[in-house]
């Protein structure tokens, strides 16, 4: 279990985290979403014990996380970050040898299985590898000791689509075997795909903490219509409206959060309707609209 209780972290006068509280139960897969600078990496850094808190406490498996004692909790914890710097002068094989010597138990089978899955370049110096290949090594390192809790900070940045899918499969398998995963990501479809819960962060504070399916409901629908009637107005609940006039009429694109029946009534009222496209999954739009609506209320 991961728990943050009223955590504040200040760097000088800047509050990178402002009274953040969250609780992640054993077996949950939680996505952590926010723009750059929202405080995601700072939150993860406090959980890992890389940095201390200015106020509040962080707990892992019921034990307080502090920089001086965090290593004791790392025996059951895996970690990977998108910008993780691995020892450049070692080959991946040497790095895994080093890493496995730091952990308890024999993880050879897990190492071999992960190597087959991700196919990393084991015998080249890590410093000479591409970002994607380095990221494969970081991900294997996070899972290789079969930890109970896995913390991932932008884990798929740099991975090609096939490796992203291989990673998501691994997360699904970990979910099935009861692992706890806390994962920050810019890719909302990825988060919605594998996470049971999504936490949205902005300016060092949590602004939403919802089940993944609730986020989809909050997202509404992305609607685009093309009509020959230039005076067409969007429905009253529409947000993010963009209008593009052309010689045969106008195209309207907006996000609609109302009910399907309301949308249906509005569509029926549109004159000279030429085309319509309704997208069920618009997480990027949801993220943007949630973010912007919170910004307006702050």
């Amino acid at each position: 279990m991961i728990q943050l209780k009223h955590v504040t972290k200040k760097f000088g006068s800047l509050a990178a985290l402002d009274d953040v509280s969250l609780k992640i139960q054993q077996g949950e897969i939680v996505g952590f979403v926010g723009a750059n600078g929202a405080g995601k990496t700072t939150t993860i850094s406090t959980i890992m014990g890389f940095i201390g808190t200015t106020a509040g406490t962080v707990e892992l498996q019921g034990q307080k996380v502090e920089p001086q004692t965090a290593h004791r909790l790392h025996t059951s914890l895996g970690y990977a970050a998108g910008d993780m710097e691995l020892p450049a002068r070692l080959t991946a094989r040497q790095y895994f040898s080093f890493l496995l010597h730091q952990s308890q138990g024999d993880h050879t089978k897990q190492y071999e299985a992960l190597s087959r899955r991700f196919k990393p370049q084991l015998d080249k110096k890590i410093g000479t590898l591409s970002r994607g290949n380095k990221q494969k090594i970081a991900l294997i390192a996070a899972f290789v000791t079969d930890p109970d809790i896995i913390i991932l900070d932008e884990p798929t940045s740099g991975l090609d689509p096939m490796m992203q899918e291989a990673f998501l499969d691994l997360v699904r398998e970990s979910k099935a075997s009861g692992k706890t995963i806390f994962m920050s990501s810019h890719y909302l479809t990825e988060v919605a795909d594998v996470c049971s819960r999504v936490i949205l962060m902005r300016d060092g504070a949590i602004i939403e903490d919802v089940k993944a399916h609730q986020l989809l409901e909050k997202s509404g629908k992305s609607v685009t219509i093309i009509t020959g009637y230039r005076a067409t107005r969007p429905p009253k609940d529409a947000i993010d409206v963009t209008t593009d006039a052309h010689k045969n009429g106008v195209s309207l694109t907006f996000v609609f959060k109302g009910s399907a029946a309301e949308l249906q009534r509005w569509v029926a009222s549109v004159k000279q309707l030429q085309d319509i496209e309704i997208s069920e999954y618009n997480l990027e739009g949801a993220f943007k609209s949630l973010y912007e609506s919170e910004e307006k209320t702050v």
Partner: peptide, 15 residues
């Protein structure tokens, strides 16, 4: 500065 220290500290190695 390179970030390698964080990588080491993410392992069960005391400071």
């Amino acid at each position: 500065e390179r970030g390698e220290l964080r990588t080491l500290l993410s392992l069960p190695i005391s400071r």
